[in-house]
Amino acid sequence: MSDTVLYGIEAALNGLMTGVMYSLVALGFVLIFKASGVFNYAQGVMALFSALTLVGIQEGQVPFAHLINAIFGTNVQNFGWEVPALLAIILTIGVMILFAWLVERFLLKHLINQEPVILFMATIGLAYFMEGFGDLMWGSDIKTIDMSMPMLGLPEGLPQGGSFMIEDATASWGGDGFYGFFIDRLDITAAIIAIILVITLTVFSQYSKTGRALRAVADDHQAALSVGISLRTIWVIVWSLAGVVALVAGVMWGAKSGVQFSLSLITLKALPVLMLGGFTSIPGAIIGGVIIGVGEKVFEYIVSASWFGDAMGFTMNATENWFAYVLALIFLVFRPQGLFGDKIIERV
């Protein structure tokens, strides 16, 4: 095979992995939309907040230290202990469950039976509140994630960098200008975690009693209420699950760039995935992510190549941001509910 084709395959493989990373963010949206019809604008900020909380707990950081010091004239910064990664993850999940309960108690409860756009606006407000609250609680400096878990075979934390094994195994496939396939080990880890997450969520949703209740609420709020399903409890569960998914997304993206405010902007990457995969399908989030990821990487590879320039008289770069939306829009024209979304039936 020619080097050009091999590098095209490499771009597609990397797109596949990147797509899974997008899916991790999209999953949280799907969970909440499925159960409550709410498009949760705050999902990206939840990823940021959960990752900030995880690092804060791990490093023994005193929450609201700046505020405490400013008010009381003290100089407290750290508790002086370090929490192992696994315990910190469990504690962070606890915080996200508490967060879900607070959201239900102080926000959603008061908006039952409101138009979806009202709930959407409320999540915009929640996103802004969470941004400021996260800053106040943990500070705005960039934090590094240390996921070393010797018990789980990760003594040095999440693996980073290209896989030597894959590179060496594939280097001989092409000519002198081919250096083997580059696949980031962090992306491979993210893909494995995403697959486990999707299987777990699907099994939970299909076979557990709570999962069936979730689906009942998703299908019809009134009918679910009439058979004794507590809408409020379901919402707490769904927001907690979305919080856990946000934590996974926050850790994976945070491992690349450090935990910082920009994590909240990964929402922008999830939107075309949702438009394509559908707002109500868990597997759709993964498939949508993969299509977007592969599509944008292969498109960028083609239009930035010198052979494309020779043939067309121009090349393009930095196409990924807009290409994902164009791809999603094309799908919308032919299938407005997305690939796996529930078909929209309007009866007159």
Partner: peptide, 8 residues
Amino acid sequence: QEQKSQWL
């Protein structure tokens, strides 16, 4: 946040 294409 996403620069895979550039670095490939």
